[in-house]
Write a protein that binds this DNA or RNA. Structure first.
Lengths: 352, 352
DNA sequence: CTGAAAGCGCTTACAG
DNA sequence: CTGAAAGCGCTTACAG
């Protein structure tokens, strides 16, 4: 390593000297603290502008020993292991930010229980956090949360699903419509003739809304590119394996000529499991890089999985809170995740 | 923000007190500087271990004002705009590390001129850098470089293509064989009957070696999954448009029944251009998220582009140098990039 | 081989 | 409304 060659950097001391004040006063205007006359305030701000002064955040952190506290509110991983990935992204970010005095508190709710969401919200608000990363799985409950955050001026970032018009810092997650559109193109490639079956598997109505947006994208593709292909639809409102099996039995006995199946979420493994047992061979497309799904990808029963960087979503969520809360960035844009196509051939290289 | 609640952290002062020495001596053993008796050294090290002391790198950086200097050696973007992406990743990392006193010097060579590579190497070695990120496009010249780096104990990271067995910190880039394998699967899906044409477009022999590894992967897929499909091969050793056109004219007049074309690098746009002019409709698969390629993807002339996160390669390259040089991480693994499948439907969401 | 003291660039009471 | 001084946890000459 070499020494810094630059002579004395331009800092508070220099500003103070030029403005004929003490560094304490410079610090006051730097942080918009009151108790400075307009005249000296202007004088100092002019100098800051003229020299394009940037504070040394290293020194600032060392001196202030500030600590930021973020809360995370996401589903627990009991029902599905999908949320393990965002969680590990959150942990990765937390680890990276730890040495800058940032603490991340984690709260989990049950995807089958709206009350558990509200209960965790209470706990979070007791903590006086500086920012919140939340998966707004339940729309109404999420709005209750944002209302309370707005009152307290706590900024929040939405992850994985969006509730538009809620004054969030930003949304980080998939563009649902477009991911359905992509699924359709893959289906169009792989299925030359016959019918296509679209399956929504979901208990909770809130989740179902998100699936509908993917369905719209899927249909939009065929509307535009291949109107002849017939799309059948199956809603499965129970997620236990026997309900799924019954529903599949029914549709495949009633409908002949189904060549491709698109499952609009990670439940695709349940369909794959069924195909395996019944030795059914069709093009099968679904969502998410989960162990079960990868197993069937490897077996050649699932052809394509669409994945949307769940780990990255968690990582970016925390980093975005940091950018907003600590680095005072504004106008942070929504961050749509890439629409990754995962296959038997490339899954080993996939970065969540 | 809340104040740190923890009482006085455990630091050099505490260690010094416990060991009955001054903090200067503690600093000496912390940095393995000589001039400390074995006895006190042991005493201090024991305390460090016992309390699992971790230095405050914020304070350390502020006090030392250390600066690290990395060099980057990559192709200039005159011939192809591929290298703009790694460059922008490098800039992004440089920007993030700037406030930690890390400086990145950039050097460029001409992909058509091995001498220019060696010339830049001389310039870099004059700079006494602390680390090097290099695209070893020319194998022999790269080995000359690594030899000289080894003498000077300058660590180096390979990016985009590898030269195995060279004692690099690690390799960051695509797994060529597997990316060819993935291309073959897409081709297999999209082409049901007929022949497939594989095209290598490359002037320099060194680049050609890399293309061969993709070709091997491509063939391996069909060897395993679909032996019936016939694979034709075309080498184009000149990269100007009229040479490419002549070669394509020749192959398409001689060979009938070609349904799919796989171009093993980013030159796929040249083939797409040809298809457009001659109104040829075939499945076309190639490499890299370049403006020209995206244009033909949008037009539906190219179906799939395989991309390997060029921006990310640059970013990771610098960050890896930082991890090795400044954070003293060891055993850093090779980092294979994901094999991204980019289509007309998802390219808008692609993160380079 | 070891220590006392100044300093990195900022922040924070405290005093006026 | 403003300033002098101490301090954040480490590093760096300098002196012995």
């Amino acid at each position: 390593m070499s020494k810094s060659l630059e002579n004395k950097e331009f800092g508070v001391k220099q500003i103070a000297r030029l403005a004929n004040v003490s560094i304490a006063t410079v610090d006051r205007v730097l942080h918009n603290r009151k108790g400075v006359s307009e005249a000296t305030k202007k004088r100092i701000n002019d100098i800051i502008k003229e020299f394009d002064y940037k504070p040394n955040i290293i020194a600032s952190r060392l001196a202030s020993k500030k600590v930021s506290k973020y809360a995370v509110l996401i589903p627990s991983s009991t029902e599905t292991d999908f949320w393990e990935a965002p969680l590990s992204g959150i942990d990765r970010a937390a680890k990276a930010l730890k040495q800058y005095g940032i603490v991340v508190l984690k709260f989990f709710f049950d995807l089958n229980d709206k009350q558990s969401f509200l209960k965790q919200v209470d706990l979070i608000l007791e903590e006086a956090v500086d920012g919140l990363l939340v998966a707004p799985s339940f729309v109404e409950e999420a709005i209750q949360l944002t209302t309370r955050c707005n009152e307290r001026k706590i900024p929040y970032v939405f992850i994985n699903s969006d509730v538009p018009g809620q004054n969030s810092v930003c949304y980080i997650g998939p563009h649902l419509f477009c991911s359905g559109y992509q699924a359709a193109q893959l289906m169009d490639f792989a299925v030359k003739t016959g019918k296509v079956l679209l399956i929504n598997v979901s208990k909770e109505l809130d989740q179902y809304h998100h699936l509908l947006r993917k369905e719209e994208g899927f249909r939009a593709y065929f509307e535009k590119n291949n109107k002849k292909l017939q799309i059948l639809k199956l809603d499965i409102k129970q997620t236990d394996s026997s309900s799924i099996e019954d529903a599949l039995d029914k549709v495949f006995s009633e409908q002949k000529g189904i060549e491709g199946v698109f499952v609009t979420n990670s439940r695709v493994s349940a369909v794959a499991h069924y195909f395996e047992r019944k030795s059914i061979v069709k093009v099968l497309i679904g969502y998410d890089f989960l162990k079960e799904n990868i197993k069937y990808l490897e077996l050649g029963i699932i052809q394509f999985l669409i994945c949307q960087k769940p780990e990255e979503q968690g990582y970016r969520g925390i980093m975005t809170l940091h950018r907003y809360t600590d680095l005072h960035e504004r106008r942070i844009e929504d961050q749509f995740m890439p629409i990754d196509i995962v296959t038997k051939e490339n899954y080993r290289f996939y970065h969540n």
